[in-house]
């Protein structure tokens, strides 16, 4: 363990810990835009600068490992002034259209602008203007809002192992894009969207469907493969408008294209909404009473005539444990047969 002090507070952390992590461990806040705990430290946004006694310039806490006896100061008028300049610079090249931005209320940049009270900007100047031309169905890429924190680039490379995007061009024109600025052509896992601190990357399907205020968030489990990823359903007016995942989950916040973007079947108009009974070859609408009585009656007759083993039931890997339990209990105890299975083999 390494002993150091942060803002005069003694802190003890394992060797190799960065100053930022040590500070967070001690519950001392340091602002960042480009840091992500699961990704390689980047040191691009420069907001996490701190003073270290004996070093004549501020260092980025996200990249600097702690050392024994280090004396760190995370906030001072000088440091805060520098952070404010950095934010002013970022905002001077940002659309600042929070009132219509999908990300408002959930945007790290907006949050920091608020805390640093930046409204007028002495550093106003040219802004990047990009034409949108991406025609993939999932990811909205609004690169004018990109602050080049590089999280999307790193996550695509380091976590997803795909490397579909990188930074191209230099200087003020530096830009995150797919090779040769072609359309995004990737696995569409949306991991990049999940880590974007601004409104540069959002889900196309989320557009104008509701922001923070009247959204309910419900934690549940993904309905697709067997990984068992935790997902958060964002619900507004009895409709799922977005899916995300928290970092502190089994799946560490990562999802696949189905899990992240494949939810619109829930509110699909073709959902079955009423029981149906076949009459003269046609399925006709019925009430629950009619349908259930009809089933009870027919199953009863089949059982009476051919025996319980002439009835079989298929349960579902898409249903809950409780439902599966009830189904097999129903087949075994109410119908009286062990003819119950599901699609485990298919």
């Amino acid at each position: 363990m390494i002993d150091l002090s942060i803002n005069g507070l003694p802190v003890s952390v394992p060797e190799g810990t960065t100053i930022l992590d040590a500070a967070r461990f001690a519950d001392i806040p340091i602002p960042t835009l480009c840091h992500h705990p699961k990704l390689t430290p980047y040191g691009g946004c420069r907001l996490c600068i701190v003073d270290v006694k004996g070093i004549n310039r501020p260092v980025t806490s996200c990249t600097t490992p702690v050392a024994a006896g280090m004396e760190v100061t995370t906030t001072s008028p000088t440091i805060e002034k520098l952070r404010k300049t950095i934010l002013e610079l970022i905002l001077s090249d940002h659309p600042n259209d929070c009132m219509v931005c999908e990300k408002a209320g959930d945007c790290t940049l907006q949050e920091l602008a608020y805390f640093y009270g930046i409204r007028e900007n002495r550093l106003d100047g040219e802004r990047r203007v990009y034409a949108k031309k991406d025609d993939n169905p999932f990811i909205e890429r609004n690169m004018e809002k990109c602050i080049l924190c590089g999280k999307c680039v790193r996550i695509c490379d380091e976590v997803q192992g795909v490397g579909a995007i990188d930074i191209a061009y230099r200087g003020f024109n530096a830009k995150v894009c797919p090779p040769f600025e072609k359309n995004l052509d990737c696995e569409f896992c949306g991991q990049c969207v999940s880590v974007c601190p601004t409104g540069a990357l959002t889900g196309k399907a989320w557009g104008q469907r509701g922001r923070q205020k009247d959204i309910k968030e419900i934690e549940t489990i993904c309905p697709y493969c067997g990984c068992g990823c935790s997902i958060t359903l964002h619900v507004r007016r009895n409709e799922v408008i977005r899916v995300s995942s928290r970092e502190d989950t089994l799946n560490e916040g990562w999802l696949c294209p189905k899990g992240r973007f494949g939810y619109s079947f829930i509110n699909n108009a073709a959902r079955l909404k009423t029981p149906l009974i076949r009459e003269e070859g046609q399925l006709k609408e019925a009430t629950w009473d009619e349908a259930l009585d009809f089933i009870a009656d027919r199953l009863g007759k089949v059982k009476a005539k051919y025996g319980a083993d002439s009835i079989a039931g298929l349960s579902s890997a898409r249903c809950t444990n409780e439902e599966n339990y009830l189904f097999q209990k129903f087949m075994r105890a109410a119908v009286g047969t062990n003819n119950v299975d599901h699609c485990a083999r298919l």
Partner: peptide, 26 residues
């Protein structure tokens, strides 16, 4: 089918799923 019954999907019910690593999840 002779009778079709409309059911709720995963987002419309409470219960548990058990994932591939035997984890019972809510």
């Amino acid at each position: 089918a002779d009778v079709v019954l409309p059911s709720a999907c995963f987002a419309e019910k409470d219960g548990t799923f058990t994932n591939t690593e035997r984890r019972v999840q809510r």
